[in-house]
């Protein structure tokens, strides 16, 4: 449907003319653009710059998939979604994939009928308190007022944690992270709780970050990853293995700097050769071009590069790799082999 949709009536005509769903891969190829759902803005993960170009850790995944499928990391239409609209946007086909720091849970996978293709960031819910409160552990927070975003898994985790530790708290419901920052700094609550990555990013913006501490307790598992709809496994495979390619590239030392050399001719390492398409036919099995992984890695670098550039220790957010280190370095980031 290439008609530019213009007035309501014209659009309705377009609706009637619309065809049945084709395979997502064919649709994306026909469209020439990947529709990728991202957040409306989260520091380090997705944000538009002054020229309207999106950048961030989740955005990097979108660009890698676009590069793998279409050969062009810029062929992405970023669709900003909120916590309330993201799942419908994916389920209805408005977007082809969602890379919006979404926690992989049982019900989202099974009940909402999505396929989480992997985890690109292992997060967990933490607590931030002012240093002057003199608290060193979440178990000392009896009777504290807690700023918490409504309608998220953090709200439920908090209730679970405090109930199981038999301590009381008073929730201060807030809508957005920005509001939370203001409320917390104004002293409306003693504690601010959200994902640890978000806490670190928030604390980095304070005028005196040293006056606030993150408590050591991580009270939940928040594996964040990209997801696709149930029912199109070929498309799911493409997104999954693009993510895996980024991870494998870091493990094998393939970076955006040396990928040109490595992919020009088969080297000594057969797995690198298979990954970059100089040997074997992995791309063909996936239904994309042979140099799909090379394009994906060249788009924004391998997993480690994306991490360092957007949320790593040299950025204002300053997250350590921690759980998100490669399995060879004691982390959880692990890709199945390319064989």
């Amino acid at each position: 449907m290439k008609k530019s949709v213009f007035l309501g009536a014209l659009t309705v005509a377009g609706v009637i003319a619309g065809g049945a769903a084709a395979a997502t891969l064919d649709e994306v190829k026909a469209r020439g653009k990947l529709n990728c759902g991202v957040t409306t803005g989260l520091v380090g993960f997705a944000a538009p710059d002054a020229n309207g170009n999106w950048d961030g850790f989740d955005v990097g995944v979108c660009r890698a998939v676009a590069a793998a499928v279409l050969g062009d990391p810029a062929a992405v239409e970023f669709v900003p979604t909120t916590g309330k609209t993201r799942f419908t946007a994916l389920a209805s086909g408005e977007i082809d994939m969602l890379a919006r720091n979404t926690t992989w849970t049982f019900s989202r996978d099974v009940d909402l009928k999505f396929t989480f293709v992997g985890v690109n960031y292992y997060d967990g819910q933490g607590f931030m308190v002012p240093k002057e409160l003199g608290v060193s552990s979440a178990t000392e927070l009896d009777g504290a007022t807690v700023c918490i975003q409504t309608g998220t898994t953090t709200e439920l985790n908090l209730a679970d944690y405090f109930r199981s530790n038999n301590i009381s708290y008073e929730p201060v419901p807030i809508e957005t992270n920005a509001e939370a920052q203001q409320q917390y700094l104004a002293g409306a609550c003693d504690v601010y709780t959200t994902d640890a990555s978000g806490l670190a990013a928030t604390r980095a913006t304070f005028e005196n970050p040293g006056d606030h501490v993150l408590l050591p307790e991580i009270v939940s598992k928040e594996p964040l990853g990209p997801l696709v709809r149930h029912g199109d496994n070929e498309w799911g495979d493409i997104v999954r293995w693009t993510l895996n390619a980024l991870v494998t590239a870091e493990e094998l030392g393939v970076t955006s700097a040396n990928i040109g050399d490595m992919s020009s001719a088969p080297g000594n390492n057969p797995e690198i050769n298979r990954l970059l398409g100089t040997e074997g036919s992995l791309g063909e099995m996936l239904g994309v071009s042979a140099d799909w992984a090379k394009n994906a890695i060249a788009a924004g670098g391998n997993y480690g590069e994306l991490f360092e550039k957007n949320i790593g220790e040299n950025t204002p957010i300053g997250l350590a790799r921690g759980l998100n280190a490669q399995w060879t370095n004691g982390g959880l980031i692990y890709s199945p082999p390319f064989r």
């Binding site: 957040t39 409306t40 803005g41 989260l42 520091v43 380090g44 993960f45 997705a46 944000a47 538009p48 710059d49 961030g56 669709v79 900003p80 979604t81 909120t82 309330k84 609209t85 946007a89 957005t176 920005a178 920052q181 203001q182 990013a201 928030t202 980095a204 913006t205 304070f206 950025t315 204002p316 957010i317």
Partner: peptide, 26 residues
């Protein structure tokens, strides 16, 4: 409309704050 993910001025204010350079400006 910012609640349904359209970037009107209020939606953009959130997107602008998501830029690491401007995070914390309200």
């Amino acid at each position: 409309v910012s609640i349904i993910g359209l970037l009107d001025p209020l939606g953009l204010s959130n997107a602008i704050r998501a830029d690491a350079a401007w995070n914390g400006i309200v």
